[in-house]
Design a binder for these strands. Sequence first.
RNA 1: GGCCCCGUGGUGUAGCCUGGUCUAACACGCAGCCCUGUCAAGGCUGAGAUCGGCGGUUCAAAUCCGCUCGGGGUCGCCA
Length: 591
Amino acid sequence: MSLTERTPAGEVRSDQVGREVDLYGWVHRRRDLGGLIFIDLRDRSGIIQVKFDPVNAQAHATGGELRLESVIHVRGPVQRRPPGTENKELATGAVEVEARSVTILNRAQPPPFAVNEDNPVDEQLRLRYRYLDLRRGRMARNLQLRHRIAKAIRDFLDDEGFVEIETPVLIRSTPEGARDYLVPSRLKPGYVYALAQSPQLYKQLLMVAGMDRYFQIVRCYRDEDLRADRQPEFTQLDLEMSFVGEDDVLDVVERCFAYIWEKVLGNPISTPIRRITHAESMLRYGVDKPDLRYRLEIQELSPIFARSEFKIFRQALDAGGVVRGLRIPRTVGTKEIEALTEVARGEGAKGLAFWHREADGWRSPITKFFSERELTDLQQTMNAEPGDLVVAVADRVEVAAPALGAVRKAAARMLGLINAGIFEFVWVTEFPLFERSKETGEITAAHHPFTSPRPEDIGLLDDQPLKVRARAYDLVLNGTELGSGSIRIHDPELQQRVFQGLGISREEAERRFGFLLTAFRYGAPPHGGFAYGLDRVVMLAAGEETVREVIAFPKNQQAEEPMTDAPAPAEPKPLRELGLQLLRPPAPPTP
RNA sequence: GGCCCCGUGGUGUAGCCUGGUCUAACACGCAGCCCUGUCAAGGCUGAGAUCGGCGGUUCAAAUCCGCUCGGGGUCGCCA
């Protein structure tokens, strides 16, 4: 049997009236009027109404047996609907198909949740019956949007002269960054592969290979805890270019996004995307991924209070800290101030100073501690209108900035300043090359160890490594980090110095990255690139809150796949073949 | 691992704060009957939950308390 004569349900139009068509699809809804029976038949293309008239006795009898989500084949003529019975909600609403014959290809049990509407359903249940969930409008739309975005990316980069090249998934573990998923080698017992966290080293080697402009839509694996925007396996758009500087990379990436937003979403973004340095972002927004959908900005207040009598400010400033403030453009009640204070405390601040602005001056429990001059200067800087609230944090800069960043975000939500459907892209540039690990206190790579320092900062590498800025940049959309990139080091000597800064000895560097250092001695072009999370891009484009809504078969927070119940207990035979032994028997599966 | 939220028929909710009137309500779905222009079809009838589990308090627990299991959010973690 061939189904080549299949007519897509959603594409039947009045110009086909009188034509006999073959429809194949699912029973989306049924309306049994006793005599006439109407069925909404659904396939991926859409929905059409099928009419079962008692005149066609056989078909009508079968029509009476149909149940939701059964799969059927209907044959019959396309008919114009009688005047007044057209359905303007449906693309096919001017016509219907009269079933002259109908075959039930698969009788469906009642589904565990309604497939013909997008009402909320427990997510674990949706994931257990994901194939039903994917039939629903929301997921079907999201997956098709994802496809169109991926295609737009490929079309755009192909036009720009990029070549899509696949790189290995089973790779050598490089114990940097996230925890690896390990795959034991059967042929070399005791040896392991890691699943690639990203194609980073391979794409750089492709540049050494002269590939010039590479990209890949590639699955990446990181064994870390899950979040609304994080899955253990996720998809990245990865690209790399030779003979370029920062501006070349940023230009290609932002034109790529402009292309997606225009072609796929029909919602053009303004380019060039604005840029902000990392230092400025930390100062003005308290984060390295600012949400610019709202305008609240943090202000430096330290100079104003440089000689303040107020003990809390005094102590912070004397200890080399800062006082920074945020104007909240609305009257905020005591309860809300308490909530904001909790937010600040959650980020390590000891508290939140606040002043209400009134027509004739400041009102606050702490006003009495400040001089007239200080209060005037405060108004000068904050530009508060009567009714506004000004809050401030005094602490070390590493505490004050993120605390106010969190308060800014909470205040924006509290005041309803965030409009849905707005897309505010921003580049964050000049990231530091290194950062100090909160855990171990050691210096680690802020981006990755192949990131080039800015030439003017190379002199600081040995003495003040934390001051060295990198040729690294992040792309941020609505406060979500989409991705990051950098200009890479292509000089083996400079690479060695950066390894040294990271406390990686020459021997260790040679052992772990020798292949890269060697490659760089055979003619490595200057190169740089970028990578961004496709799941996150689609999530934001679709207006979804989690990446699970744009992934066909995602993992839950325990990194389980509830439909197949992966992961499953290890079986003895494959373990033996791999030369592995379990220290502990697997826990019994939880029901 | 810490913190926060959620768990009531197949699905989604109400009831919980303030214990008894809960013999657990409503909508959808499901089953049966009626119905020839519906499109979230309509009407009538019916089945279906011991309120995630265990323990406690009480004359009495869906409701209060403790523990626990499951799900989600978040911090840590994510070069």
